[in-house]
Design a protein around this nucleic acid. Structure first.
Length: 110
DNA sequence: AAGTTGACTTTCG
DNA sequence: TCGAAAGCCAACT
């Protein structure tokens, strides 16, 4: 698996996974953590808060498809622009994980 | 070295 | 079905 930069930190691994998410798709924090072999969903959020400046963090959502706390509006704008399947709920808009959920190990086998 | 925090998840009431 | 509590992992103090 060719990678331009050395990956040795949890944050770097999270960054790679998030970047591997194609448009119109999304993953949950738990899924990303599972890909890394851990359940550190919280640590994933922490990484996105720091590295997310250059990452499509809006493609990573909470369990159920809702956007991260405090960034719902920001993520919503991105998803509307990307064309991610959204569903309207009483609490607002959420990602339709039934269609948008995606795993990096399915198509990105390199 | 030990305790607290956090862009979370899951289970029990 | 909805709400609160405990659980987990990694980073920071």
């Amino acid at each position: 698996m060719p990678d331009a930069h050395p990956i040795a930190d949890f944050g770097a691994a999270v960054a790679e996974v998030v970047r591997s998410i194609p448009p119109a798709h999304a993953m949950t924090y738990g899924d990303v953590a599972a890909v890394l072999g851990s359940r550190a969903s919280r640590a994933v959020g922490r990484v996105l808060a720091f590295e997310g400046a250059d990452l499509p963090w809006w493609r990573v959502v909470r369990a159920g498809g809702w956007f991260p706390t405090g960034h719902e509006q920001r993520a919503l704008e991105h998803h509307r622009a990307e064309g991610t399947p959204l569903v309207e709920g009483t609490a607002g808009w959420r990602v339709d994980l039934r269609r948008a959920r995606w795993s990096p190990d399915v198509e990105d086998a390199s």
